[in-house]
C-alpha cells in the first residue's frame, strides 16, 4: 500500500481500543444492520407466531402479525391431518430422525478416515483427489440431481431409505473442512504415536480425533443440517418412508386452510438445525478459520 504509506505519519494521541472509528458512521452502519436484522428475523418470528395462532386469527382482516390467544391446537391438528390423510405423524418424524442421525454418524466416520491421509500422508494421487474434492464443493445434490436419480434407479434404490441416505454421504464439505484443519495438526504427535507402535487407524482414533473435536462437531452440524432438510419427494413415493419435510410440503400445498398445521410442522422442522448450531457455534467458528482455499 504505497499510496497510504506516502502520507504524513499521524500518531494517535487519543488512547482508545478501536482506532479509525468515527461515531456517525458507527451509528449509520448500526441502524442499517438493525434494519437488515429485522428483515432476517421477521419471517422466522412469523413462523413461530403462526404456529400458535388459532384458526380464526388467520382469517382476520386486517391481519395481525402477532398472536392474541395463543393455542397449541395447530400441533394437534397437524397430527390429525397427517394421520387421516397419510400415515401417522410419528412415522414421518421417525424417518427424518433415522436418516439424519444415520447419515451424520456414518458420514463423520468415513469423512475423518478420508481426511486424515489426504492431509497427512504423501501418497501418489493425493494432489488430484484433493483438487477434485474442492471442485466438487460446487456440484451439490441439486446440481447433480438428475444424474443421481439415474444411478439410484439403476441400483433399484428409488423408493427406499437408501435413496436419501447414500447420496447424502457423497458431500465433500465435511472432508474439505477436516483436511484444511488437519494441515496444521502437529506431525510430532503422529510420529510419537508411530514410535509407540500404533497403526494408522489407532493414531486417527486415539491421537487425531480427540484433538480436533471442534472440527468433528462442525462436520456433525453441517451434515445434520443438510440431511434434516432433504426433501425426498422425487425419490420416495411410499408415504411410510417419506421424511417430515415432504409431508410438510404436502400440507402447505393445500393453501391457507392448512396454515395452522403447516406452521406447526414448519416450527418442528425449524428448531433442531438451529438448536444444534446455537449449542456449538464456537466450535464452528474455530473450524471455519481454516476454511480458506489456497489456489
Amino acid at each position: 500500500m504505497p499510496a497510504a504509506a506516502a502520507q504524513p505519519k499521524k500518531i494517535k494521541t487519543k488512547k482508545s481500543k478501536r482506532i479509525n472509528r468515527s461515531l456517525p458512521t458507527t451509528i449509520l452502519l448500526g441502524a442499517f444492520l438493525f434494519l437488515l436484522g429485522a428483515f432476517m428475523a421477521l419471517p422466522l418470528v412469523y413462523a413461530v407466531v403462526s404456529a400458535f395462532k388459532p384458526m380464526e386469527e388467520f382469517f382476520l382482516f386486517p391481519p395481525r402479525f402477532f398472536v392474541q390467544n395463543p393455542t397449541t391446537d395447530n400441533f394437534v391438528q397437524m397430527v390429525q391431518v397427517m394421520s387421516s390423510m397419510w400415515v401417522p405423524f410419528e412415522r414421518y418424524l421417525f424417518n427424518t430422525v433415522l436418516i439424519s442421525f444415520g447419515s451424520t454418524i456414518v458420514y463423520v466416520v468415513i469423512a475423518c478416515m478420508a481426511a486424515y491421509p489426504l492431509a497427512k500422508h504423501d501418497f501418489p494421487g493425493r494432489g488430484p483427489i484433493n483438487s477434485v474434492i474442492v471442485t466438487a464443493l460446487m456440484f451439490t445434490a441439486a446440481v447433480t440431481c438428475i444424474a443421481r436419480y439415474i444411478i439410484l434407479a439403476m441400483m433399484h434404490m428409488i423408493d427406499t431409505y437408501w435413496a436419501m441416505f447414500l447420496p447424502s454421504l457423497a458431500t465433500t464439505l465435511g472432508v474439505f473442512l477436516c483436511v484444511q484443519n488437519l494441515h496444521s495438526f502437529p506431525t510430532e504427535i503422529l510420529e510419537s504415536g508411530k514410535l509407540d507402535g500404533a497403526g494408522e487407524y489407532r493414531i486417527l482414533a486415539q491421537l487425531v480425533i480427540p484433538n480436533i473435536k471442534p472440527v468433528v462437531a462442525t462436520m456433525i452440524i453441517f451434515q445434520f443440517q443438510s440431511v434434516w432438510n432433504i426433501n425426498g419427494s422425487d425419490l420416495i413415493y411410499d408415504e411410510a418412508l417419506k421424511p417430515l419435510v415432504t409431508a410438510l410440503s404436502q400440507i402447505t400445498s393445500a393453501g391457507i386452510s392448512r396454515a395452522g398445521a403447516g406452521s406447526a410442522a414448519s416450527l418442528i422442522l425449524l428448531i433442531p438445525p438451529i438448536l444444534v448450531f446455537v449449542i456449538s457455534q464456537s466450535n464452528v467458528m474455530e473450524t471455519m478459520v481454516n476454511s480458506g482455499i489456497k489456489d
Binding site: L44, Y46, W228, N231, S249
Partner: peptide, 9 residues
C-alpha cells in the same frame, strides 16, 4: 439452515 421454513413466505 431452516430448510423448508421458506414456506412461511
Amino acid at each position: 439452515v431452516s430448510g423448508n421454513a421458506y414456506f412461511i413466505w
